[in-house]
Design a protein around this nucleic acid. Structure first.
Lengths: 345, 345
DNA sequence: AATCGGTTTCGAACCGGTTCGACAATCCGT
DNA sequence: ACGGATTGTCGAACCGGTTCGAAACCGATT
């Protein structure tokens, strides 16, 4: 391996001069700088990452904590990961992917050994056992997901409450008066997936404000069951004219359920989901939806994290809790309820 | 940060003694060893990864080169990643996730700066531009996927030729005499995804050997198109009694196509796919399939890579090209063709 | 000729580990 | 009681960078 010493020798200068010539942290004559740069090219010099990390205590690596949970939809997860990874590279950082079962131990290992300059954490639970560890580590951290206690970390998430209100409001405005909301499985909640509550509670409240009926239900995360559950719900509430879906498996199963029942949307039933554009693309889903924006959230988290790492002043600033305002992607699956259509004709 | 010097001081020994006490590379009296271990516990010492990497020129990190291509099915990709990640951790290694667009530059950056001890590469193309770089880097590498030229790297892949033969043979044995094979989109081929050819050519050859008819077609990777394409194919070949599918999007779209046409499997049409059990689970696909085993392949690649890294003797051994024998997961979607059934009754 | 300020370069120390050779202390056999 | 092997510990060097303080060099000023 060629070291900076070799470069220095080839350029006929000292190691320190070679270092300064490359970093530009001190004035170096043009002549010497060119000699050093030539030597770098000729010898094919690349600084040793370990040595640099030791000297500067900066690794230019970020940890990405991501658990692959069986009940979480994998492609959605990937969207976050790609957002994080791409943004990190743009800013000059590499990504250490940490998928250990024992995330708490992994956090200790990674941060204490100074392998990374900061941590991005996904799948954040309401009271996440990883958070205390993260705070104890003297490294900046950014979360994608809203925990109960946000002290000491930067937090980014979709505003699920606004999303819930938005979905109800959207259908109410179109004339709907009885709706069904299908949420994630109950055990996602038990594990601390608070966003399910946040959306559902806000939807319920908004329905109350508007004086309309909203039936809520938890759906399975598996395909054959969830299809039957949707059928049962539609049977149980024949007067419902709108379907809100905060459950990836349910929305993926919905097209065939509608087809079997001979329903079309929005003519017979208005449908609005909550998922990502990428998810819609993969399954070519024909429904309008509230964009979950996983890539944007990953991007925002990394940006903030890097800012905190690199600017000593930013490191002291108060921590951020940023909830992204949801936006509806209109794919035409919502409209006036059937009765209104009739009346209008 | 607490260093090994602090530990040594607390234990009343020299730095080198503390190091030996922890590594066990030299005999140390029980008494001193216990004092050192106590000091480590009390002070909460964790070795600095950069310093250790510098001293030992081992980082205990593996690079995972993975591109997320729009036409590759993301969840399948994830299966490989999880297999690699889990196995790496079991063996004490962390994973640096490299998803850069410019993979060749990334390979240079990562390997020349000695950030990793070895490289696992996914989505290998027939003539992969990354391979020369990988060979030039003086680091061991393991591929998941079979390139044209395997010199200098360990290679693991499914035996797609055997898979193609197996699918044809399976249906031939059940009495089928006319089959349709739907492959990946043609541009996957153009990009160098040779496994598509390998399966298709072997299937064609096996059909020839058995003297039966095999219609081949490339399918889209998108949902609405692929459904129509399947319909067209079934219309074009009404005498075909069996469907072989090497295309994730097609198999995901198949249930609703069959439903629409009022076909059931295997009574009206035998179906066999080539995908992973995880994919089957996510989409609850009711078809028999040849297992793609992404997790096993990832695992094998990492095992071999680590062996090569850690054992100086293994490092000299000839490189491996290992093709996994495919296995059929029977989910009951294949049976005798309709005519035979009729005859039998 | 000596002094001065500014620019450019060098030498040495440091980051935090590992490892080698040397030395001291203990144990064995004779 | 003595030489030799064995065991346990230490000091110093090294891995490959960065960074600080000081020295060398320059032309300009007094």
């Amino acid at each position: 391996m060629v070291t900076i010493g070799d470069v220095a020798k080839a350029a006929g200068v000292s190691r320190s001069t070679a270092s300064y010539a490359l970093s530009g942290k001190r004035a170096i004559s043009d002549e010497v700088r060119l000699r050093v740069e030539d030597a770098v090219k000729n010898l094919g010099y690349t600084p040793n990452a370990g040595a640099r990390a030791l000297a500067t205590s900066q690794t230019m690596v970020l940890a990405l904590l991501a658990q692959f949970l069986p009940d979480e939809f994998a492609p959605a997860m990937l969207q976050y990961i790609m957002g994080v990874s791409d943004t990190a590279r743009e800013l000059g950082y590499d990504i250490l992917l940490v998928t250990d079962e024992e995330q708490t131990k992994a956090i200790e290992r990674i941060t204490r050994s100074r392998m990374v300059d900061g941590v991005v954490m996904l799948n954040v639970a309401e009271t996440d056992e990883r958070l205390p560890l993260l705070r104890a580590a003297r490294q900046p951290a950014a979360l994608v997901g809203l925990p109960h206690d946000c002290t000491g970390v930067d937090v980014f998430d979709l505003d699920f409450e606004e999303a819930g209100r938005m979905m109800v409001e959207h259908l109410h405005r179109l004339g709907h008066r009885e709706l069904i909301l299908i949420s994630q499985p109950e055990h996602v909640l038990e594990r601390g997936g608070a966003y399910v509550w946040r959306l559902q509670d806000a939807a319920v409240e908004q329905a109350r404000v508007r004086g309309i009926v909203l039936h809520t239900a938890f759906g399975s995360a598996q395909q054959p069951e969830i299809g039957q559950e949707i059928n049962d719900l539609l049977d149980a509430h024949p007067a419902a004219t709108g379907l809100l879906i905060n459950n990836e498996a349910a929305v993926a199963a919905l097209p065939s359920v509608l087809h079997e029942r001979g329903l079309t949307s929005p003519e017979d039933l208005s449908v609005i989901g909550r998922y990502s554009a990428e998810f819609a693309r993969t399954f070519s889903l024909p429904f309008s939806f509230v964009e979950g924006a996983p890539d944007r959230l990953g991007r925002m988290a990394v940006r903030q994290l890097v800012k905190r790492i690199e600017s000593t002043s930013a490191a002291k600033e108060p921590h951020v809790v940023r909830l992204l305002s949801p936006e509806i992607a209109d794919r035409g699956s919502t409209g006036a309820p059937p009765a209104d259509r009739h009346r209008r004709r």
